[in-house]
Each structure stands twice: as C-alpha cells, then as structure tokens.
Design a protein around this nucleic acid. Sequence first.
DNA 1: GTCTATATCAAGATAGAC
DNA 2: GTCTATCTTGATATAGAC
Lengths: 224, 224
Amino acid sequence: MDAETTPRRRLSRAEAKARTRKLLLEAAAQIFARKGFAGASVEEIAETAGFSIGALYSNFANKEELFLELYSAFNQDRIAAAAEVLAEYEKGTEDGVNAMGRILVDADTDSDFALLLGEFWLYAARNPRVYDTMAARLREPRAALERLTGNALAELKAPPEATPQAVAAVIAALFDGLLRQRRLNPGLVSADLFGHAVRWLFAGIDATGARTPVKTARRSKKAN
Amino acid sequence: MDAETTPRRRLSRAEAKARTRKLLLEAAAQIFARKGFAGASVEEIAETAGFSIGALYSNFANKEELFLELYSAFNQDRIAAAAEVLAEYEKGTEDGVNAMGRILVDADTDSDFALLLGEFWLYAARNPRVYDTMAARLREPRAALERLTGNALAELKAPPEATPQAVAAVIAALFDGLLRQRRLNPGLVSADLFGHAVRWLFAGIDATGARTPVKTARRSKKAN
DNA sequence: GTCTATATCAAGATAGAC
DNA sequence: GTCTATCTTGATATAGAC
C-alpha cells in the first residue's frame, strides 16, 4: 500500500499530483467494485478520495479514462504476482501448483478483486471500441501462465490436445470460476479446492496421454 | 374479469397482458445484457419491446423487479436444460460429459447468455438485500449437477476430498470460466475444450484415488 | 492543482387520458 | 392495459475563483 510519504518536506507540485492520482485510483477501485461503472458516480469517487470533482477531472479526462487507467493498474498487480510465481517455480523454490494456489487466496482475500474482474470483463465484452486495448493488457499474464503450464506438461505424458494454451485456458477458467463461486458462497468452495482441481487436471492429462502413447508419432511441418 | 373466449383472433385481456409481459422480458434480456442493470434505461427496454414506459410499469413494479423477474425466467431455462441432460444420462442414452458439453455450446451460441450471467452475478454480489432470493434460484440446477457428478464419481476410485459437491463446483467453474474466455476470445477456447477438461478431471480423480486407496479407512469424529 | 458553482441532460417513476 | 406528458432527481462535465 502507501509507502513513502515524507511528512517533513513539502511535496513538489508533481509529487502532490501523483499522490492525488493514486488516491483517486484507490477510491475508484472501491467505488467501481461496489457500484459498477455505470452505477458509480465520479462525485462519490472524488469524495471518497478526499477531493472534489474538479480535482478528478484535472487528473483524468473523463469517467471512462479513469476506469481504463484503473484497469491498467489492476493488471500491473496481476502481472507482478504472476511473475513472482513464475520466478519461484523456475528457481525450483516452490511447486507451481502451490504458488498458483497462493494467487487465488490473495485474490480471494481482497473482497473487491472478483467484483472488479467481473466489471472489467463486462466492459470489455460490451465495448468493442476499447476491447483491443483491454485484451492487450491480458497477454502478458496469460503468456506467463502458458509458460508455467508448458513446463509442467513437459514433465508428463500429455495427449496432443493438451497444448499449453488449452491447459492454460482451463486453469484460468478454474481460477476465475472458483473465485466467483467462492465470492458468493464460500461454503461451496474450500480454500484448497483450486489446488486439488489443478492436481486432478494434470494427473488426468498424464493418464490420458499414457493411454494413447502415439503422441510423438507425427510431425508434419511445424510444431504448434 | 371478462372471461370471454374468443379462440378466433382477438386475445383476451389476460392473454394480451401475458404477451406484453413476455415481450418486455425478452427486450429486457437484450438491453440488460448489452448495457447492464445501471446502464440500461427502462425507456429503451419498453421501446425495444414495442411499448411505452407506462406499459412497462403496469407490468412490473420497478426496474429492479423487472431485472429479478428476468433472472427467474433465465434460471427456468437453465433448470430445464440441466433436467434434460440428467434425464438423458440416467436413461443411459447419452454420456454425461457429452450432454454437459452440449449445454456449454448452447450457452455459447446465445451471445447474451454470458453477459447476463455476469450481470446477475455482480448484482447478487453487490446487493445483500436480494442475495438470498437469487441464491435460492441456483440451488435446483446445482443439485442436479451434484447428482450427475455423484453418479460419475461412484463409478471410479475417488479420493475423499473429491466429494460430489467439490467436483460439481469445479465443473461449474470450468463452465463459467471457459464460457467467459470464449466470449472475449473464441480462439483461446476451442468448442470441445470443456469436454476434454471434464474428462481430464475425472481421469485425474480416478488416478489420484487409485494411488491412495485408504479412502474408507479412518473416521475420527466428524467428517469435514 | 484543486475547489465551488452551475449548465445540461438523461433517467426512474407517476398521473391522468383513452 | 397502455399511452402521453410531466415531475423530480442525480449525474457528467465545465468555468472561473483561489
């Protein structure tokens, strides 16, 4: 959260503005999560941050830009989390499944996370104008996940349909779907169900591949 | 009222009202899906249905009631679909996985389905006032799914953590998560990935259970 | 750079005509 | 039972003061 605020020295103009911007983004996260894009008012966001409407419009062109900037910041965090997991995994420090499990728990702890995720998804699905911009932000964390699954698949007998992309999609779906169910009804989704599911998944892929060991047979022109 | 039966052409008062109601609900599904609850206007819904605002308010108390009635109708369809799958499965006519796969494809064909699902989820998560009502509507289809997974699990060696409830949650998560990814980027999620994922899941559960065949061993005091 | 005041508009809901 | 007209509110965005 907030780290270095030098209470002694006066903040420079640029520092003050950056601080205002940060506070506005934090307030926006809270209000957009609770009310949604259309339901949230810029006035409430500004007041929650401790500023006026004017301050908000001096930092963001309009409501949509604020929302999209929040989306960028939101994804920066996801990228950081994914990178951390990937690093731990590649160092061999931690099992990949455990690391992914920690991401889910972290996301679950932040009660706004699932709400914001849902709101961003709807916004992207409804607004083709900004869809490309938003989709581009997802490529980096998704690539990290595919790398992780690719590594895991290399260690077992996977059938040809179990590509890193396909398995990454399945894991992302599990993450998303379990997080959402847990948000509404924690009793239905225990904290370690995600971990179990991922292990079942890989065990099943391995078992399926072992049953059809033709997998390295054919290689027409290019692997994909 | 005047129960005049005119089987020829003219609709009775009640029939006309029922027809208006149905058209309004269909329009509401479209507009709520495209704009969301807060973003949709009752005027646009009424006009899309071919009526005026007054007609809408004569059929529904307010915007929220219209939304919740739509949710009920939406779930009636889901219950019907689930029941159909369950019936086919229990008759032995169709493999359970194939049947579930068909549900996903059907949902994917209706471009409004995922949007509405997302909107309903957000509304339930944000409005504790109506959460119980909405959650109650989910119990029936969820129970059907648990019954389906319970039957499937009975035919293989499942570890103790693979309860019908837990596995049903995983399958629901796969359904939800894959549907949402496919909605934004169909290239990432092939039409049969859901089927593959479910098969991998059950194969993995079976393999895991076979590896730890102590499953009926110990029962200290209370199952959890 | 932020605040106050305000122009402008769209939306939910109601009342009374037909 | 549905329509037209209207009341009322609350929101985005801007302009000018400090």
